[in-house]
Every structure is written in structure tokens, then in C-alpha cells.
């Protein structure tokens, strides 16, 4: 029997904050791609579901010295001591050893929300309501991503449905590996400023790998030791200082 084990990848992103204009295409593209339902009437920014959320962050100065940076924050795909994985009581969260993608299986989830308290990046979202699309919109859902039911946690999985599609395509062609161009998450694809670079961090020839080591590239909360696979880049000093600061400090 043929061994079908795939080579080990470590998918990650480098987001150039200087390029991000905060337009929000990525958030909408993400919701459309991953069948995230529109907000319930009563939903707020604290009960909504935004796998990818862009936070506007100010430098705190008054007019006109004020400056704002937009920080797209998604599951950081922690590569080390992944905080949400160890806490889940029933193995609904795991790190895929072959891709490094942190997966959340809503069908296994019992909705205890322990993973949400564990995640320092607030990248996990709970379905406080039953998902509801306007009447008739069901036919517009993406068939590659299962909608979630209420009462479970969900989060970014680097558009895993697209990885599935790329794998199907590769398998049909008799290939073992997917073609890199076949697997691009929706936010990366839709970003008008091309602020997000996505790829395999383990592949040193890859642009994402090179950028992750470049100057002015940083991670959020690196001292927690969780080794996030989302890197950020900014030439602005205040942005890097802000990212390095402790909250409320």
C-alpha cells in the first residue's frame, strides 16, 4: 500500500500593516467564503462572529497628530503550546501535524467556551444564535464549508475548504502535493492592497518565509511563547512599540 503521508508544512501569513487601508474586504470575503451568517439583530461587536477582524488602533495623539493603524487579527495558528488545544475537554481542537493549521471541529464541540478564555488573541467566536441567512440565500452558501450550529465555538482555519479543493484537484491529477497557487485563503485573495502574504513558512524559498524574518516584522504577544504563525510588518515605530507593550501599561 502506498504511503500517502504528506510532507510537513507550516502555513502562515505576513501582514503588512502599512499597506492595510482598513477597507474591510477581507472580513466580508472571509464571511462569504466560510458561510458565516450575517449578524443577528441583537448581535454586537462582542457577540458577533468575525473569523477575521480588523481592529483600528490609534496612537492616542490628538488632532492632527493622531495616527491610526488597522490590524487584521485572526487565529494566530499558534505553533507552540497552542493555548486552545490543550484546554478543550473533548479534542474538538487540534493542530494538524501536516499543515500546522489549528483546527476547530464544531461538530465535536460542546460549547464550553474554555478555548475562548484561553485564547489571548480573541480569535475564537461563539455562536450565540442559530445562524440565519436571509430567506433564499441558502443556495448561495459555499458547499465546501459546513455551516455551524448555535452553541459552538468557531474560528479561522485558513480557509480549509480551499485546501480540500486543492487536495482534490491534486489527487484527481494523480499528484501527491498541492500546487501552491491552488491554495490561497479568501482574505489573501481579496485584499485590494495585497497586504497579506500567505504560504508555507517551512519552505525557506517561500516569500512568506523570507518576509517573516525580515526587519520590522513582529508578532503579537511573542512572550507568551505560543509561536504564532501570523506575522505583522510595519515601518512605523509607534506601531511596533504598541505591539510590544503590555495592555494597560
Amino acid at each position: 500500500m502506498e504511503q500517502t503521508a504528506q510532507s510537513k508544512s507550516r502555513y502562515g501569513m505576513v501582514i503588512d500593516l502599512d499597506r492595510c487601508t482598513g477597507c474591510g474586504v477581507c472580513m466580508v470575503a472571509c464571511a462569504v467564503e466560510n458561510n458565516v451568517a450575517p449578524a443577528e439583530q441583537k448581535a454586537t461587536e462582542r457577540t458577533g462572529v468575525t473569523w477575521l477582524r480588523v481592529y483600528p488602533v490609534s496612537n492616542g495623539e490628538g488632532f492632527p497628530a493622531n495616527d491610526t493603524v488597522f490590524i487584521p487579527m485572526t487565529c494566530q495558528q499558534c505553533g507552540n503550546h497552542t493555548p486552545c488545544v490543550s484546554v478543550c475537554p473533548q479534542n474538538a481542537v487540534e493542530v494538524d501535524p501536516s499543515t500546522g493549521i489549528v483546527g476547530q471541529i464544531p461538530q465535536r464541540c460542546l460549547g464550553c467556551r474554555y478555548c475562548m478564555t484561553a485564547c489571548p488573541y480573541h480569535a475564537r467566536y461563539f455562536d450565540w444564535w442559530d445562524p440565519q441567512w436571509p430567506e433564499g440565500t441558502e443556495v448561495l452558501l459555499n458547499p465546501d464549508v459546513a455551516p455551524r450550529m448555535r452553541g459552538v465555538a468557531e474560528k479561522c482555519n485558513f480557509c480549509h475548504g480551499r485546501l480540500h479543493a486543492a487536495r482534490t484537484k491534486a489527487a484527481a491529477a494523480g499528484r501527491k502535493e498541492i500546487a501552491a497557487g491552488d491554495y490561497v485563503p479568501a482574505c489573501v485573495e481579496s485584499c485590494p492592497s495585497r497586504a497579506i502574504v500567505f504560504g508555507d513558512l517551512a519552505d525557506e524559498t517561500n516569500e512568506v518565509s523570507r518576509l517573516s524574518h525580515s526587519i520590522n516584522t513582529f508578532q503579537f504577544l511573542p512572550k507568551l511563547g505560543t509561536a504564532p504563525k501570523i506575522f505583522y510588518h510595519s515601518a512605523k515605530e509607534w506601531v511596533r512599540k504598541m505591539a510590544d507593550r503590555a495592555p494597560l501599561a
Binding site: 503521508a5 487540534e94 494538524d96 471541529i105 480540500h164
Partner: peptide, 13 residues
């Protein structure tokens, strides 16, 4: 049996 490196997301979407 086939020693596939398995993760939930391999088969769940």
C-alpha cells in the same frame, strides 16, 4: 491501518 497522519480537518469541513 494505512498510517495516514490524521487530523480532523482532513475529513471535516
Amino acid at each position: 491501518e494505512r498510517h495516514r497522519d490524521d487530523s480532523c480537518l482532513d475529513c471535516h469541513k
